Deep mutational scan, measured.
Amino acid sequence: YKIYPYDSLIVTNSISVKLPKDVDRTRLERHLSPEEFQEVFGMSIEEFDRLALWKRNDLKKKALLF
């Protein structure tokens, strides 16, 4: 996945969300650098992957990456 800054990946309720063209809309968190991922989620990507799907989705919603 290509890395993008968190600010360019957050999704708000506005209709005209302009995400970069090559971003996987269903896995926005994968486009964060490991350092920024840790900062946003408070855990590593590996720890995040071990969580239940509902928990990952809940965290993504709170981080505006859903």
Rank of each mutant, 00 (worst) to 15 (best):
Y1V: 15
Y1T: 13
K2R: 08
I3D: 04
I3R: 05
Y4W: 05
Y4G: 01
P5V: 03
Y6P: 01
Y6V: 03
Y6H: 02
D7C: 15
D7Q: 15
D7I: 15
S8L: 15
L9G: 00
L9W: 01
I10Y: 04
V11K: 06
V11N: 08
V11W: 08
T12P: 09
N13I: 06
N13H: 10
S14E: 15
S14C: 15
S14G: 14
I15A: 15
S16E: 14
S16T: 13
S16P: 12
V17N: 15
K18M: 11
K18W: 07
L19H: 08
L19G: 06
L19R: 06
L19F: 10
P20V: 04
P20F: 05
P20L: 07
K21T: 12
K21D: 15
K21Q: 14
K21P: 15
V23L: 06
V23E: 02
R25I: 15
R25V: 15
R25C: 12
R25H: 12
T26E: 14
T26N: 14
R27Y: 07
R27G: 05
L28Y: 02
L28E: 01
E29M: 01
H31N: 03
H31F: 04
H31I: 01
L32K: 00
L32P: 00
L32S: 00
S33K: 05
S33V: 04
S33D: 07
P34R: 12
P34L: 12
E35K: 13
E35S: 10
E36P: 00
F37L: 02
F37I: 02
F37T: 02
F37P: 00
Q38L: 14
Q38E: 10
Q38A: 12
V40K: 06
F41S: 00
M43K: 03
M43F: 04
M43P: 00
S44M: 10
I45R: 09
I45S: 07
I45L: 13
E47Y: 08
L51C: 05
A52P: 15
A52L: 08
A52T: 13
A52G: 09
L53M: 12
L53D: 10
W54M: 08
W54C: 12
K55W: 08
K55R: 12
K55G: 04
R56I: 05
R56V: 04
N57D: 12
N57W: 07
N57P: 01
N57I: 15
D58R: 09
D58F: 12
D58G: 08
L59H: 04
L59G: 01
L59I: 05
K60P: 00
K60Q: 02
K61I: 10
K62T: 09
A63K: 09
A63I: 03
L64M: 12
L64Y: 10
L65M: 05
L65F: 03
F66H: 09
F66E: 07
